[in-house]
Design a protein around this nucleic acid. Sequence first.
DNA 1: TCGATTATACCACAAATGTGTACTATTTAT
DNA 2: ATAAATAGTACACATTTGTGGTATAATCGA
Lengths: 198, 198
Amino acid sequence: MSKTEKAPDRRVVKTKRAIKNAFARLLSEKDINDITISDIADLADINRKTFYNYYAGVYEIVDEIENDIADAFDRVLTESDFKDNLKTPLQAFEKLTAIINTDLDFFGYLLSMDSNANLAVKIVNLLKAKTRELVIPYVPVDEKKVDLMLDFTMSGLVAVYQRWFNSDRRESLDEISENINVLCFKGIPAYLEMDIKF
Amino acid sequence: MSKTEKAPDRRVVKTKRAIKNAFARLLSEKDINDITISDIADLADINRKTFYNYYAGVYEIVDEIENDIADAFDRVLTESDFKDNLKTPLQAFEKLTAIINTDLDFFGYLLSMDSNANLAVKIVNLLKAKTRELVIPYVPVDEKKVDLMLDFTMSGLVAVYQRWFNSDRRESLDEISENINVLCFKGIPAYLEMDIKF
DNA sequence: TCGATTATACCACAAATGTGTACTATTTAT
DNA sequence: ATAAATAGTACACATTTGTGGTATAATCGA
């Protein structure tokens, strides 16, 4: 993760862009399993061999796009006021949603795919790392306990967000945020406003 | 999900078994992307064409094996005393762990793969459905709230279990269970034994 | 047990894949 | 401006894939 990444050759970004665009267009027309590498190469107007310079197969494009989204989210987390003004991480999702929406033609198909579980995992990991880094200094307890807590809450958070994103989005993210806050900080009984014991 | 499934032809189960075994062996030898269908057909000693009777590609085997595990877990949930004696669902994981362990040669590689995110999703869905069915009658609150709660807690639960499973498993599942219980029912501040406000 | 049904084998073929080599074009760095 | 480095093209080839069609063998149901 060092900053030693040299400026990429213009041709590289051009062809990769072309490949991703071609892929996105094809994905809007047919199932991913019916997309052949020749299809992509033809539409992107590159030599088929060139494709293999960057991707071993069609699914590796998906992988990279997922990473693109994750990177965007990472940038949101670090560049935003998230650091100085730690509220519910869900507020960061507000911005992620905006990002995704502006490129929805492109990401829409991806997000509705089954494989968005992978993207979810990546985002969970980002949130865990970021939150740990911000919170740990003020929470001097057993690291294992914190790990468990972060695993639990961040996975839950992303799951809720994911369902919201793929639903009609009737509720505002603020409402969701409020719900999760109560759930996290007061526990299930308070959340359900009733005394239950499992 | 009706019980209308007729008894499967013996030949079918035999060949599918052969395919899965061959796949498992190949997976222990090389990367999944280097496994060709011809490889599997050869090793399973079946005609290549026969493979396509059941799977459209290599990854569909993975899919089915994941479903096998999910089914096993489903059976654990319904057949066990889970229904009459509702404790933490994590106790059901105790049995799942046992199941997986007895077949670890077979499942091991799968579980260490990236794609076990899919398995996690399936298990989350099972737990959500099962828990809702058991809990809802006693929790007459807004269904949307319950949905959110189930999404959050079950995803969190599975995430914690998953990390435990892929770790050294130093802690007992009972300890994990206890931690999650506190987290769920008392909230984060109580869990961390400190007064924090985000 | 026997006829009907279904799974599998065998062969064949067009399409797609993955990779190698030699040649050309573009970009980068000096 | 030019040389070195890198990316892309064109073509070629062996392999794998997906899918036909037909024949044979195993299984099921009565």
